[in-house]
Amino acid sequence: MALRDQSYLRVVLYEGNDAEPLASESRFDAVSRLLNQGFALTRVGVGGRTAPADDRPALVLGQFRAGLEPNALSTENVRVKNISGLTGEQIAGAVESRRVEQKAVQHGGWKPWFPVIDYDRCTNCMQCLSFCLFGVYGADREGHILVQSQDNCKTNCPACSRVCPEAAIMFPKYKAGPINGDEVKDSDLQREKMKVDISALLGGDIYSMLRVRSERAQSRFSKERDSDKALTERQKCLTKLAAAGDIPPEVLMSLPSPEEIMRRAEEAKAKAQAALAAQK
């Protein structure tokens, strides 16, 4: 199921009227556990604002005063649970049970690593779309670049941000700026690495380089029947690129066959050309 189609559970920790506040340590423990399990949580206290209710399933947790029957307050979509006397672990367990009942999304199955476009900087040049082999980018009806399939992105790989001439592509979980979203300074743009055509790192077109290397390796393989040598050769080629572009070696090693790379590259270029044509 696509990320966007998954349902999820809203958790509300109610500490307003008709409920006893949790002890400080218990509250922090419960909230921390739920966040670490991937849940979003609304804490309702004595002051401040919270986002309004919506139509998604919710679980309301609270130490409700005696005489207030949680089941009577529950509806089909909103379940109310008394958590008096429960430990943080038991509270987290109760939320998880409700999530399973609701068939809501299980968090943590995917590290949310994907590009985010800064449209203040983006010039819609389509280099990212042309470059990406994994179909992460697309274009809207007017030919504007957008991130279309976040879950296709290769975890920890910031390669497309390196080909962006305007430093307009962020990966918020990247370690360093400006790719992590930190302010873009003039010096960043002047640095060759921010403007580099990544193929230049290998002294030529990355795709043809990979193809040549692979063909050599395949040729040697056919002569020597040594699959380890072929693999070593490919690794040598990719290590240089990985170091220069901070691209995880496992991402490069998982690239498809040279033929498939060429096919996808052509496809991506065609998409970019169509999007650029749509702008005219």
């Binding site: 506040p21 991937g38 979003a40 919270t50 986002a51 919506d54 999304v105 994907f114 918020p172």
Partner: peptide, 30 residues
């Protein structure tokens, strides 16, 4: 988070904004 929890204030806490954005979670509009 601890200071927020102890403040008595209402608040929203999310596990990961990136994940919510990738899912286009309608809660973000809220």
């Amino acid at each position: 988070l601890r200071k927020l929890c102890d403040s008595g204030q209402s608040f929203e806490a999310v596990a990961d904004l990136c994940e919510m954005a990738a899912r286009q979670d309608p809660a973000l509009k809220r």
